[in-house]
Design a protein around this nucleic acid. Structure first.
Lengths: 203, 203
DNA sequence: CGCCAATGTTACCGACCGGTAACTATTCGG
DNA sequence: CCGAATAGTTACCGGTCGGTAACATTGGCG
């Protein structure tokens, strides 16, 4: 018995992966620790030995999701080395892929909505992650020689955050379908200093 | 005893108002029906006689919130009669006021995040509301003679949705602080056909 | 007044919640 | 091969959840 091939990973990691999926599927408050443990082919005691409480499990899940999400920046640099503008455009396309692929939005943002309690251990994780992402994108926009880089990066952040949350309300046919077009227009409008780019951006 | 002056409203309305506040404060899944009934100076039975279930109470709350939110359009028309562009700008300022005033974002969008279950009676309410808002704003942008009115309205929608959800993760100092600037820039960029406005929009 | 509908009260249901205790079985490194 | 750490099992705790039954109380209206 037991799962077919999941046995090579230790319970701690199985629990984290399973919890992340179930939180996405049912909402953080919509799934209990026992169900998580069972779905991870283990038991409640082991879960509580690794994470002291459900709240800590939540926080650890988000920490992992945040680390995973931070890999973008390396990927972008790898795909477009020394081309900050192409990296900004890559960020947009990556964001679009997230919107299209995931029926649920950003785990961190969703958790912030689901956990209004300001003292929750997850809140610190969420805030630090979002601030870090914001700074990274702003830096990228600066290196891409865009006008008003801080305004552009915050605009792009808001567009993506809006697209990911709006998809959960309206679906794929809603405003989120315009995310790429909106983002590209913003980028184009703030790079007017170079001369030839305005034309292809209008398309 | 009893509340000081709340007795003039019938229990049904008291329950709706109280539920809306408590859902905001603790999250939909974070508060129980008994607590809602007691906070509304009534009891669980009365609640269940008016709304058949917690899920129906949630849906009814959102229906009311949606109706309340629809009053904007009349207000905008009243404040800037026959000036669609001013109404678009008014929409932006109203959105900004929401972001600044409420620590929690749009009740409907939050509910969509908190209730991943696709069969929940609230889902239909949320979707219809968001679609209606989108159409209204798009129509306004069309009447304001903006270029690409559909793209502009969706961009503005995404910006506001992003600002309201991002505020819950990062707080008021995050990207949401740039909502007005971002929105104004988008509007300005899409009204280049008239000649004099570009200057004041640059500020 | 007397009737009826709306409300309030109390007690209860089964299910599940997050969390713990005590004990056993497994694994793995020295 | 032994000992220690890790993992699994079972049973349990008090509390809360959404939801219901039966009955008592109120209040408005003909």
């Amino acid at each position: 018995m037991r799962g077919i091939c999941t046995d090579r990973v230790r319970p701690r990691q199985r629990i984290l992966d399973t919890a992340r999926n179930l939180f996405r599927k049912y909402g953080i408050k919509g799934i209990g620790v026992e169900a998580i443990a069972e779905a991870a082919d283990t038991n409640k005691m082991t879960l509580y030995r690794h994470f002291g409480s459900k709240d800590e499990l939540i926080a650890e899940c988000l920490r992992e999701a945040a680390n995973r999400a931070c890999d973008i920046w390396k990927d972008l640099e790898a795909q477009h080395p020394d081309d900050a503008l192409a990296q900004v455009r890559g960020w947009v396309r990556f964001g679009s892929a997230c919107v299209l692929a995931e029926d649920r939005g950003c785990d961190l943002a969703n958790a912030a909505v689901e956990l209004p309690d300001g003292d929750h251990p997850a809140k610190r994780v969420i805030q630090e992650f979002k601030v870090a992402q914001r700074n990274r994108l702003a830096e990228l926009c600066r290196r891409a020689d865009l006008q008003n880089p801080d305004l552009v990066s915050d605009t792009l952040s808001l567009l993506l955050e809006g697209a990911r949350v709006n998809r959960q309300s309206v679906g794929l046919d809603g405003p989120c379908a315009q995310f790429v077009a909106a983002a590209e227009a913003v980028i184009a409008a703030s790079q007017r200093r170079t001369d030839t780019v305005a034309a292809d951006a209008a398309r």
